[in-house]
Design a binder for these strands. Structure first.
Lengths: 148, 148
DNA sequence: AAAATACTTTACGTTTACGTAAACTTTATC
DNA sequence: GATAAAGTTTACGTAAACGTAAAGTATTTT
């Protein structure tokens, strides 16, 4: 699937713009499982994917502990006991609900940003108008009004 | 606009399901500005709105510092100097980009949850099938299969 | 008036997610 | 073979966002 099979710690760090400290920390917390050549870490493409998921999780406001729980659950799920499968389905449902909440929050925020922006532009337009009137009063040439 | 004009700390805490400690902390950090009657805090409906925004911000992964920045910026913006207005527009644009990123992240996550769920259901179906075959082999009556 | 309830400040404690420095080893480069 | 570059462990430090007493004040209820 992926181009390369293994990665050094700095390769991963550079690719995802995190410090090696963070990567080591994620391993320490049980989120990544690199093998070793001597004492040097060797990361698989699975680790790479997981790192990507970790970071996306963070952007979505997930804690490392939450993400780890999902990883662990998924690993156990693959082994395929029925209880695990049902637990996974349940967890997925709960996470979905969480994402729904987030989508609502974002939609709300966007609406409020719309009205905030509108007010800003209105206030700006008012200022421009006042400027123009001043210029007219002092008989100067009006400038071109720029607005993105 | 709102039904009530002022709120006690415990009213707000109860309504938004946070501790009074948190509310006091938000004031301490300059996000809320209750007046005082004696030494008792009295929160306005503006404070109430801001508390709501704080909590939504948190759910979207915003830090208190980020939220405070927006509050402060908005307060200055209302005073209406041109530089402030342009700065606000710029900030809004950046926040929008951030929300776009989050929406993408969520969409991605949802897709992956779809495939994860599909795999789970498939595995479950396989297990059910095996159960059925076992029952047939031992000549027992098959049970009804439930699946949400 | 006594007791319960709600509020306050002060201040130290805790968890999360790393940053940063020290001291050392292994690998690559000149 | 020296030196730089990349890796390692150990360990203390830190910022954010509160939790959790402790000890006191103010108000309300019985």
């Amino acid at each position: 699937m992926d181009i390369k099979k293994t990665y050094s710690i700095s390769e991963l760090a550079k690719e995802f713009d995190v410090t090696t400290r963070s990567v080591r920390f994620y391993e320490d917390q049980g989120l990544l499982h690199p093998t070793r050549r001597g004492q040097t870490r060797i990361f698989s493409s699975k680790d790479r994917v997981r790192l990507k998921l970790i970071l996306r999780g963070k952007r979505m406001g997930f804690s490392l502990a939450e993400t780890k729980e999902l990883f662990d659950l998924w690993d156990e799920t693959l082994s395929g006991n029925e209880k695990q499968l049902l637990l996974m389905l349940d967890t997925l449902a709960r996470k979905r609900a969480q994402l729904e909440q987030q989508k609502n929050d974002i939609a709300q925020a966007e609406m409020e940003m719309d009205t905030a922006e509108a007010r800003c532009r209105e206030a700006l337009a008012d200022l421009q108008k006042k400027k123009l009137q001043q210029k007219r009063a002092t008989n100067e040439e009006p400038e071109v009004i720029e607005q993105k």
